[in-house]
Design a protein around this nucleic acid. Structure first.
Lengths: 209, 209
DNA sequence: GAGGCTAGTGACAGCTACTGACAATTGACA
DNA sequence: TGTCAATTGTCAGTAGCTGTCACTAGCCTC
């Protein structure tokens, strides 16, 4: 944050993002127009599109941040951990520390509310899933390198990431649908519980449990 | 196909779909406007939107069809099969018979080319992934009923479907990226091979294989 | 510390996807 | 054949997004 120019830019972006999330979470995503957002910050529409590729991009900015954190967390796992284990540790521990990183930009509570808006808005959910795929690809490459296999000939890196991502999606959906618990501890615990169910889910016969 | 009215309707829809896919696969999805499509069929733009919810909807119509087939295939699996086994059989056998079902509307080759357009067009991929999630939910409920468990308290149905869907996505992506083999046999074989890699991918240590 | 340079912004015009309202047409059926 | 209803076209409008161009305010050099 050196020059005055950069500080001003950052302030404009933060103001836009915050106003956008505030409107999305109260009024709804579709019901909020870009004009509403820029009116709240008192800048031109053109300016909004200089900071965000689109309405969608603003809505997903916070998740983008936590996904980037997750990717780095995986990269930082000690090499002796098995792939699935590394992913598990990265996501569980990633929830800690996220609060501080997020609250530098927007209130954590707004962030968590936005999570649910994404989950319940088809257009946003779609965009989110696609971006997640890109993150999956990155992680697959990290795992492949850790384990010394070739990501283009060995399907295992992409597979284990896809399986893991599946669990995360189910977890998030469950957390987003269930009425209560808008805090980080709840989702972390749910994640651990669901990851433990992967084995049972793949088991031959569920009925004899 | 009783009355003349219904036949005309069907013909209009088929013509629109076919023109759309033809344009999407040659010129690209983004580069094709709705006006281009309706010009090719010589109907008004309004008519297009009466048959398809949007441009996207037309692009995904064929996949919609094969997904619906898959859901029914799962429902029809014999009850003694384990969940993962039922899913596997449904997808493998589902590829047979698909050709005939599709070619009633559009040429199979056009259908397969469209697959790749979806994979390589961000907006379409996003929409496709979201729709897949809806299909996953349906299948999870089918499995839950088969196995006699409650889908809202037992995470296993949704988990096994999410895991399976992950494998399918990786498979499709691989098939779509690899240069050759635009036929059904290739993707069926790849699916089987990747499903066999689920165990190895979850294994503790890849390096000692 | 004056003046040129440039990043950031606003104003405006334009394109495309999509929707609502109403009129015109065309098949169905008595 | 005439009436009704389903289908389609026309027109006007909204929203997301982009290109252009002129202007202002921070920055940097002499």
């Amino acid at each position: 944050m050196e020059t005055l120019r950069e500080r001003k830019k950052q302030r404009t972006r933060d103001a836009l993002l915050r106003a956008a999330l505030e409107l999305f979470t109260t009024r709804g995503y579709e019901a909020t127009t870009v004009d509403d957002i820029v009116a709240a910050v008192d800048v031109s529409q053109r300016t909004f599109f200089r900071y965000f590729a689109g309405k969608e991009d603003a809505a997903l900015a916070v998740r983008e941040m936590s996904e980037a954190r997750f990717v780095e967390a995986v990269r930082a796992r000690p090499p002796h951990e098995a792939p699935m284990q590394a992913l598990r540790q990265a996501v569980i521990e990633g929830w800690d520390g996220l609060s501080e990183a997020v609250s530098a930009v927007v209130p954590v509570e707004l962030y968590l509310r936005m999570y649910r808006v994404i989950e319940s808005t088809p257009a946003l959910l779609a965009a989110h899933l696609r971006r997640s795929m890109e993150a999956e690809e990155k992680i697959a490459r990290i795992l492949a390198e850790r384990e010394g296999v070739d990501v283009d000939t060995d399907p295992r890196p992409r597979l284990v990431v896809a399986l893991f991502a599946g669990v995360i999606r189910v977890t998030e959906r469950q957390w987003g649908t269930a009425a209560g618990e808008l805090d980080v501890a709840a989702i972390r615990e749910l994640t651990a519980r669901y990851l433990d169910q992967v084995g049972p889910a793949l088991a031959e016969d569920w009925r004899t449990r």
